[in-house]
């Protein structure tokens, strides 16, 4: 089976207050992370974005489709995605705010779609249309529903052959149901970061401290770039003079893990027991 994956990122992120596609998560943006995770177990990936939406850099083989009718809910985003993936036998659909989407759950959904049009995850009495696998040939049905203003996904599931993958089956491969977790609010985002990464302290010195208004900033990260992205997010006054918005140190700034030598490789591993120390390179008198 040729597997497609579509990642919807055109939502308005209203409750988050900023574009979720760009939220830092480890050394990546949320969209980059989700794309990397689905690409690892699917043959082709399409990102569905709003027209004109600015996206973080993506691998060259990832295509971008545009949702010409935004604000139609998940069904609206599925149409351009499935059209772009017409050559696939079935397509996993997710959104860019699902940082824990996993190969195990994706494999399970593909395994269940075999003689159906859709395989959708279900838990706590809800279906999860963006944790589901769709056959591209459901597009006409989707278009009819959209034209009729019938936007709820359940209308589709009633119309086509749908396999519902229940909680019991999901928990067998994802005991905490992490793959179904969305980060819709700042709290959910912080919570997801806390699940994914250890807490570590970033110690700020000289003007970094003065501008941030504090000496220590706790962040959730496991690499240098991840920590700096969080730092830029938590202390906007540090960009661009101390950290750039994309998680690098500005010229004339240095970072040290624990205070011994200085590091600049973005993937330098960090652990919770050694603080990251940010100082000016112009340390002399």
């Amino acid at each position: 089976m040729r597997r497609g994956a579509l990642v919807l990122c055109g939502g308005r992120s209203r409750r988050m207050g900023r574009d979720k596609a760009w939220l830092p998560f480890g050394g990546e943006r949320l969209l980059q992370r989700v794309v990397a995770r689905v690409a690892a177990c699917c043959d082709e990936v399409v990102v569905v974005a709003r027209p004109g939406q600015e996206l973080p850099p993506l691998p060259a083989d990832v295509r971008v489709a545009h949702d010409e009718l935004p604000d139609q809910g998940p069904l609206g985003g599925l149409v351009p995605g499935l059209r772009a993936l017409a050559a696939c036998d079935a397509c996993f659909a997710t959104s860019c705010d699902a940082p824990f989407v996993s190969a195990a759950v994706i494999d399970l959904l593909f395994a269940r779609v075999t003689d159906h049009d859709v395989a959708v995850a279900e838990s706590g009495g809800f279906t999860h249309p963006l944790s589901a696998v769709y056959r591209p040939h459901v597009v006409p049905a989707l278009e009819r529903l959209l034209a009729a203003g019938r936007l709820r996904p359940v209308f589709l599931y009633d119309e086509v052959a749908t396999a519902r993958v229940d909680e019991h089956a999901l928990r067998a491969v994802d005991p905490e149901l992490d793959a179904l977790r969305n980060v819709n609010t700042p709290e959910a985002y912080e919570d997801a970061l806390a699940r994914a990464f250890p807490e570590l302290s970033v110690e700020l010195y000289d003007i970094a401290r003065a501008r941030a208004g504090r000496a220590v900033v706790p962040v959730r990260a496991d690499t240098l770039r991840g920590a700096l992205l969080q730092l830029a997010r938590l202390c906007p006054a540090l960009a661009p003079d101390v950290v750039t918005a994309d998680g690098a140190l500005a010229a004339h700034w240095r970072a040290s893990v624990g205070g011994a030598s200085f590091v600049d490789a973005p993937d330098t591993p960090l652990a919770g027991d050694a603080p990251l120390i940010v100082i000016s390179a112009l340390a002399g008198g």
Binding site: E203, D206, I207, A251, G259, I279, L282, G284
Partner: peptide, 23 residues
């Protein structure tokens, strides 16, 4: 520009805590 911001905003006295941290 940023290369002299430290000197303008705080002066060299801000080195003390840096050197302290670096032993």
């Amino acid at each position: 520009g940023p290369a002299t911001a430290k000197y303008r905003e705080l002066g060299t006295v801000t080195n003390l805590l840096v050197m302290n941290r670096l032993a």
